[in-house]
């Protein structure tokens, strides 16, 4: 192959890769929710990150924050951590390995589905979770749509 052809092929390949990433990320729409009874109306991605990584245990208004995770390996969990926290599943596992084995904390409790998370968040004014946009109803409030 001539050098020009190699460069052209590389460009095409990277374009295809970029396109496949765009379609992949447009798949689901994760939103961060609190109970409709909560006084929290808005949270930044950075504030949400700190709550889910256990770096703080309260909301910016000092009320207790109780984060709820979704099941390991679920698409919604991977999307939340990639879009909001900027960590891949293995980066997240490595992070918790450090925290757990230094005795500094434990990962959030886990629930199995959008429905279960919505229900748990709806009845606890201190809870915070993430679900697919399509699962939102009046019992919860969206505070971040990344």
């Amino acid at each position: 192959m001539k050098p020009l052809e190699i460069i052209r092929n590389c460009l095409i390949l990277s374009l295809l890769l970029a396109m496949s990433m765009v379609t992949a990320s447009a798949h689901a729409d994760v939103v961060v929710i609190v109970s409709a009874k909560s006084s929290i109306t808005l949270l930044t991605a950075a504030q949400t990150t700190r709550i889910f990584l256990g770096k703080v245990d309260s909301f910016p208004d000092d009320s207790d924050a109780f984060p709820i995770d979704q099941a390991e390996g679920s698409a919604i969990r991977d999307e939340f951590y990639s879009k909001v926290v900027h960590k891949s599943p293995s980066q997240l596992a490595a992070y918790w390995a450090k925290v757990i084995f230094t005795g500094d904390g434990r990962p959030p409790e886990m629930l199995e589905s959008d429905m279960a998370v919505r229900k748990a968040v709806a009845k606890n004014p201190n809870a915070i979770g993430y679900i697919d946009k399509s699962a939102v109803d009046k019992s919860v409030r969206v505070i971040l749509a990344p």
Binding site: A93, A94, Y95, A97, K98, F101
Partner: peptide, 11 residues
């Protein structure tokens, strides 16, 4: 990383 230096998986 001194308190997790034994945990290879963490770095």
């Amino acid at each position: 990383d001194s308190d997790n230096r034994d945990v290879g998986y963490s770095y």
